[in-house]
């Protein structure tokens, strides 16, 4: 076959492949691009309480700067994010180490450890709402049985963020533990053998070998949890609806209320796009960190 004929055949094959994959590519791009483009367009629109729509330019974004609820929501979102991520990474690594070393732990016990993240968040929220009810819940009953003072949990402006962070951590720590466990199982045994020969204590082994080698895996878990935590919605909506007052009013809850309860879809879109930008920023920062700790 001449070179020209071969090139022609290759071109034809490329064309055929393109034609065959085009529907899937177009569908995927449309499914991702359309909602994003539509939301961007909505962000430039103004909606009155009666749904009357008009072009607003950058007014929705300008309003963010002077909107107390936006800045408060941003603070709540970040506080909840930092506290939850810290708890989930610390306890996730600890749980992974327990599961890794307790090789004789029965399968059913291992399954119980990791089962919370398989529960739908709405069910988890309802369950904790009942447990933490200050009057009827089991949590205060246990505290009082132990001679401790009861807490208002989700009804206290001071305690609502730590309480929601605890609920989310209860649910998602096992997920982090599973990821870290995968990382632990892939660590090279030779490094541990060398440490053992050198007489390193278990703590030193963990501090100098396990943790540094696990860092890329931990950062991966942090990225996955960051995306979820920054757009945290379901458990807060079920348990507090952003209250008491606005103590747990995250950007996501605020955006939902502005859009679906007050019908200002334009401003809600601007809020949500800002939140999306924050999520992207966090993911990019963690990606850089992952590059820095890779081995």
């Amino acid at each position: 076959m001449s070179d020209a004929a071969a090139t022609l055949t290759q071109d034809r094959q490329r064309l055929e492949l393109s034609a065959l994959s085009a529907p899937a590519v177009i569908f995927t791009v449309a499914m991702i691009a359309f909602p994003v483009v539509y939301t961007i367009w909505l962000g430039f629109q103004s909606f009155s309480s009666t749904g009357q729509q008009s072009f607003a330019g950058l007014a929705n974004y300008a309003k963010l700067a002077s909107d107390y609820e936006f800045w408060h929501g941003l603070w709540v979102t970040i506080a909840l994010y930092v506290l939850s991520l810290f708890l989930q990474l610390v306890f996730g690594v600890w749980l992974a180490l327990v599961l890794f070393h307790a090789k004789r732990l029965p399968g059913i016990v291992r399954s119980m450890f990791i089962s919370p993240f398989m529960m739908p968040p709405v069910v988890a929220g309802m369950m904790w709402l009942v447990i933490l009810d200050p009057s009827l819940g089991a949590a205060n009953y246990i505290l009082q049985s132990l001679g401790l003072p009861p807490s208002e949990w989700l009804a206290s402006p001071t305690w609502v963020i730590p309480t929601v962070a605890l609920i989310d951590s209860w649910q998602w720590t096992p997920y982090v533990a599973l990821i870290v466990l995968g990382g632990l199982q892939s660590l090279p045994p030779s490094v541990y053998e060398a440490a053992q020969i050198d007489g390193a204590s278990p703590f030193k082994t963990f501090q100098r070998i396990t943790l540094p080698l696990l860092l890329p895996t931990i950062v991966t878990a942090a990225i996955l949890r960051s995306v979820d935590l920054l757009r945290f919605f379901d458990i807060i909506y079920i348990t507090t609806q952003g209250g008491p007052g606005n103590a747990s009013n995250t950007l996501n809850i605020y955006g939902f209320r502005v859009g679906f309860e007050f019908f200002n879809i334009g401003y809600a879109s601007a809020l949500m796009l800002t939140l999306t930008a924050i999520v992207f920023g966090a993911v990019l920062a963690f990606n850089r960190l992952r590059g820095a700790v890779a081995w």
């Binding site: 009810d133 200050p134 009057s135 009827l136 009861p150 208002e152 989700l154 009804a155 206290s156 507090t240």
Partner: peptide, 16 residues
């Protein structure tokens, strides 16, 4: 009122 009343709507009131 009960502790945590700021989270009370009809469901919690009826249950209590």
């Amino acid at each position: 009122g009960p502790p945590g009343v700021v989270n009370y709507s009809f469901q919690q009131i009826s249950a209590l």
